[in-house]
Amino acid sequence: MTDLTHSGDRILRALRFAVEAVARRRRERPTPIVPSHNVAGRALVTTIAIMTFLASLTVGAVTLVSETAAQWQNDISREITVQIIPREGLDMEAALGAVEQVARETPGVTGAARLDDAATSRLLEPWLGEGLQLSELPVPRLVVIAIDTSEPPNFEALGQRLTEAVPQAELDDHRAWVSRLVAMANAMIITGIGVLVLVLLATALTVVFATRGAMAGNRQIVEVLHFVGARSEFIAAEFQRHFFRLALIGALFGGFGAFVLFWMMGLWTESNQARPEADQISALFGSFSIGWTGYAGTVALVALVAGLTALTSRMTVLRQLASIDMLSPVEN
């Protein structure tokens, strides 16, 4: 009996020595436990690429809407407009001149300029077409007033003075309109963040199932290594390295696809700036460019997806190995 015990100890020590030798050889010449190229790996790369692409679009949209909302709030602090409603017997040129004079005499106003016929016609082209004759249509005329952001004027007093000078004049400070747009933008930002979280969660769940499938496909190798003394961290590191590489490849493809789409959208906007439809888009979203913030967010997202995949794979392997340890005494 004692001889059998000693023989078993010698065999166990030999196996542990073999495992350590294999581990040393793996460090010198990496040979992953999980096959580097298989159908499941290619499917995971494709899935992560799609997920990263969708998440990058979400990041770009959130960045664009956030920057646009900030731009709207900044614009409202710099300019207001006065609208003059045409009436029978009203001298429009004289009314425009009176509004400009009242505005320039008001403290806190840095300038006032009427919107000429060409600019007014351009604003109306998307709805009324080209070649408008403003003298033949009851089209309201606008005066743009630039205000001092550090010391803005009293809008109520300014509106009253304008009404006294030109009864058909209406002051519009855009605050109600912009507040509604900003509220809508904030709702879109919250929705986008929620979508981003769901996409990342779906990616993590996909990695969990892929890791379990890889462990099931290499179950004998994993169990032998585990039972003969290989540390759980060593086995988990092998799976972590494998899935990190797959996730990085897929995330790079998805992020690159988003980059190309962002670039094409910005190029389309710039090439169609002379069209009225593009003017309306530019009025809402500027140049439709996400800027460096959006591109940096996409790069950070690629790193986040790769890191999340590696961490998820590691935790899944450690949990599976812990469950094997719990079941092994019962089986013995």
Rank of each mutant, 00 (worst) to 15 (best):
F259H: 09
A103V: 02
D172W: 03
V317M: 12
A157K: 12
S232L: 01
G266A: 15
F259K: 06
A55K: 02
A70P: 07
V144K: 13
P86R: 07
F234Y: 12
A283T: 08
R122M: 01
V224L: 15
A169N: 04
F256P: 03
S77H: 10
A119W: 00
R13E: 14
L327D: 14
A306S: 10
E93F: 06
E20Q: 12
R29E: 12
T211G: 06
R219A: 13
A296R: 04
Q280L: 14
V45S: 04
V143K: 03
R180L: 13
W268D: 06
G255N: 06
S121I: 00
V99P: 03
L171Y: 09
D325P: 01
F288T: 09
E164R: 12
R161D: 15
L205K: 05
L304S: 10
G194S: 11
T203A: 15
M188Y: 07
W268V: 07
G307N: 03
P126T: 11
V299L: 15
R319C: 09
D148G: 08
V195K: 03
Q83V: 15
W177T: 10
I11Y: 07
A274F: 07
T110I: 07
G41E: 11
I221V: 13
P32T: 11
Q273G: 07
D279L: 10
F243G: 10
A118R: 10
F53G: 08
L124T: 04
V99I: 06
A146R: 14
A216P: 01
I76E: 14
L171W: 02
L321Y: 10
R29A: 14
V197K: 08
E331R: 15
Q83H: 14
L246T: 11
V299K: 05
V228S: 11
A202Y: 04
T120V: 02
A300K: 00
T5P: 04
G213C: 09
A251G: 08
V82N: 06
I235H: 09
Q320H: 09
S313E: 01
N272I: 00
H174A: 11
Q71V: 08
V139D: 03
S36V: 15
I147C: 07
A95V: 00
D325I: 00
F256H: 05
L123D: 04
L201F: 13
R114K: 08
V82G: 06
D91Q: 09
S313R: 06
W72N: 08
T52D: 05
A310R: 02
I290H: 01
I235Y: 06
A176N: 11
A61Q: 02
F53I: 01
L252K: 02
G213W: 05
A113W: 05
V65R: 02
V109I: 10
Q71N: 12
G194T: 02
R78L: 13
V39D: 04
V34E: 15
A49P: 08
S179T: 11
L301R: 11
T31I: 05
L4K: 11
A146Q: 13
V224N: 14
W127S: 13
R104S: 09
Q73R: 14
L308W: 00
L132M: 06
G294T: 01
S77E: 14
T312Q: 02
G266L: 09
A157H: 08
V62F: 01
R16G: 14
Q73S: 15
